[in-house]
Design a binder for these strands. Sequence first.
DNA 1: TAGATTGTTAATCGATTAACAATC
DNA 2: TAGATTGTTAATCGATTAACAATC
Lengths: 218, 218
Amino acid sequence: MKNNASKENLSVATLRRMPSYLRYLKILKEKDVKFISSVAIAKELNLNSVQVKKDIAFASKTPGKPKVGFSVSALLDDIEDFLGCYNIKDAVLVGVGKLGRTLLSYNGFKNYGLNIIAAFDNDPVLWNSEINGKTIYPIEKLPGILKRSGAKMGIITVPKVAAQDVCDLLIASGVKGIWNFAATHLNVPDGVALKNEDLAASLAILSQQLSEILKENN
Amino acid sequence: MKNNASKENLSVATLRRMPSYLRYLKILKEKDVKFISSVAIAKELNLNSVQVKKDIAFASKTPGKPKVGFSVSALLDDIEDFLGCYNIKDAVLVGVGKLGRTLLSYNGFKNYGLNIIAAFDNDPVLWNSEINGKTIYPIEKLPGILKRSGAKMGIITVPKVAAQDVCDLLIASGVKGIWNFAATHLNVPDGVALKNEDLAASLAILSQQLSEILKENN
DNA sequence: TAGATTGTTAATCGATTAACAATC
DNA sequence: TAGATTGTTAATCGATTAACAATC
């Protein structure tokens, strides 16, 4: 039963590129550019134009016009809609260290539909204080607050030794999506989505590419 | 001319998985586990065992033993070596806001061979102060310090409106690898590696997976 | 020996790219 | 009209997975 044929071949690769289209379109809109072709987007972002066309086809509600391209503002809206930017998802954050604080202070997530409703830490000094309007609670209150709020996403920014316990607690409290910033491997059961924010992996890729470049220039 | 046949088919996908093997091996070493099979690693990390075997083959200097697997500590060393963890690369960081501060304070990068030698910001209040032993300088000093140090990597943590200018300045000062944490698209010439740290992309993927799960459970 | 595991070769799968007719 | 761009179909490429002989 395929009730959403348009998403049939939606790949992680496409999804990963989508926010970069969004960012570029925002730049164009600021410059008051009205129309943009997939060919031009591809050139700017160093992608293949067919790839861009296919990616855009997943999000765009109105077809592009030959010789003209796509309306910048319409496409921007469509991609925001596609990425669920208008469909706010509540989340909680556990671990108010440096990284946790940075994420709590960052207001850019709401542009992508993410709303952090509360934070948790086991340091009493932080309890009931606020960062960027978000209150910090003791971990003990996590199950209650999560269940009452119905939030389904948890952001883990605790030290790695504590990460698995926090992960288990979140899942036991109804969380179905985990965004893990702790530099460790987590075990999650089936039916729970896990995304590791892996600076080490990024660094590995960049280092490798850098070595290649330096080798060529030697 | 192929002078490194073993790296012939090294893919970004393999490189991205490598740090997760490293982390898992570290956990095993702490637990005093002496040997591990690729099959067991695959099961734990939810990967295909052939994939794990092929990935490991890129890094491992000693073959695995049938019925036994790989020596945890030897494999750990080999992967660290493969990822260039022993080959320290100097970098500078530009933009000492919340995120910049967090990255400067993070000591985990040195485990992956990255050494931040200096930071830059245009706020005079920060000049000559230190974070985690790294001095903050005015941006004007960037070209001089970069050229003298020979550092080839730049980390961008400035607001997005300033990111392209900073990027251009880094490249003009000899940087060949850019790690971009600003949520914007950057233009770099050929011969410069660019890695965008894209929280929006991660969030898009996680949100999508979460929606699928919630849909199934509805 | 039996069985678990290794590493490799071949098959499959899916994403990217090339080619092209349709359109404005 | 000519030409740029669209969207689609087919070909290519590369990564993943299956199958299997070799090994301890």
